[in-house]
Amino acid sequence: MQIDFYQLGRTPLEQVIASISQRLLADGKRLLIVADDEGLLGKLDRMLWDQGPASFIPHAPSGGSDDARQPILLSASTDAPNIARNLLIADGQWREAALTFDRAFYLFDAATLEGARLAWKLLAGRDGVDRRYWAQDEGGKWVEKG
């Protein structure tokens, strides 16, 4: 399983999530986006709707009757009724359940940096876990740091 650590800086959280979501959808994959903050989930829901008619990102907040059909689901829980094999942690709070997915995207900022460092250390040397750390260079391009 692969875990991509994304240290947020230049690009806003919402824009990073939109980019990852679009890439996964283009590859025919499903995604579960998790955050404990209902306000953040609501903000992400609006952002995914507001991508414009040409770039609408199909999604829904969890708890609806069509959860299983949603390519992207927004939730406070790591349960994936949409059978997503990709998890995006949007609130910077590591969840051990991420290890049950094929791939996890762990987004963190300066406020959640210590938690990300701890998760990085705890995952070191674990069988079947491939960690990757991404940060933006001066031009805003995502560069793997190792």
Rank of each mutant, 00 (worst) to 15 (best):
P61W: 06
L44A: 03
A104H: 01
L31W: 07
K121R: 15
L25E: 12
K43S: 13
D102T: 06
Q70L: 04
L87E: 06
L32M: 00
L107R: 05
A54S: 13
L73N: 01
P61V: 07
A116I: 13
A26I: 05
D67Y: 02
G64H: 05
R23K: 15
L107K: 01
T100W: 09
L31F: 04
G39R: 13
F108N: 01
D91M: 09
T78L: 01
A98C: 14
L87P: 04
A60V: 08
P71Y: 07
L32T: 06
I83H: 13
L41Y: 08
R95P: 00
L40A: 13
S77A: 08
P12F: 13
E14T: 09
P71C: 07
L73Q: 02
S77E: 08
F56P: 08
R46W: 11
D50S: 12
G9A: 12
S75E: 03
P53Y: 08
L24K: 14
I33N: 00
F108T: 01
P12N: 13
Q70W: 08
D66I: 00
P58C: 12
T112W: 02
L31E: 01
L31Y: 04
R46G: 06
L74Y: 09
L48W: 03
I20M: 09
D66L: 04
R69F: 05
N86Y: 12
D27M: 06
D50Y: 01
A104D: 05
P12T: 07
G52D: 14
K121Q: 14
P12Q: 11
D37R: 11
D79I: 02
Q93T: 13
D36R: 14
S75W: 07
K121H: 13
D27T: 05
L99F: 10
I83D: 13
G63N: 01
K29W: 04
S62C: 02
R95C: 00
D45V: 00
N82C: 09
L88R: 02
G64N: 03
I20V: 13
A119W: 12
D27K: 10
L32C: 03
L40W: 09
E38C: 07
R117C: 11
I72V: 08
H59A: 03
L87V: 05
A80V: 10
S75I: 03
L44P: 00
G42Y: 09
L8C: 10
L123N: 00
L48E: 02
A98H: 09
T11C: 05
A60H: 08
S62L: 05
V34G: 03
L24M: 12
W94Q: 02
K43W: 11
A18Y: 08
S19D: 15
L24P: 08
A68E: 12
F101I: 04
A119H: 13
P58E: 14
L73K: 05
F105E: 00
F108A: 03
P81W: 06
S75R: 06
T11K: 11
D67L: 00
R30D: 00
M47A: 11
T78G: 04
S55L: 15
A119V: 11
I20C: 12
N86F: 09
A35G: 03
G9C: 10
A68P: 06
Q70G: 00
A35S: 11
L25I: 10
L24V: 04
L122N: 14
K29I: 01
I17P: 07
R46Q: 15
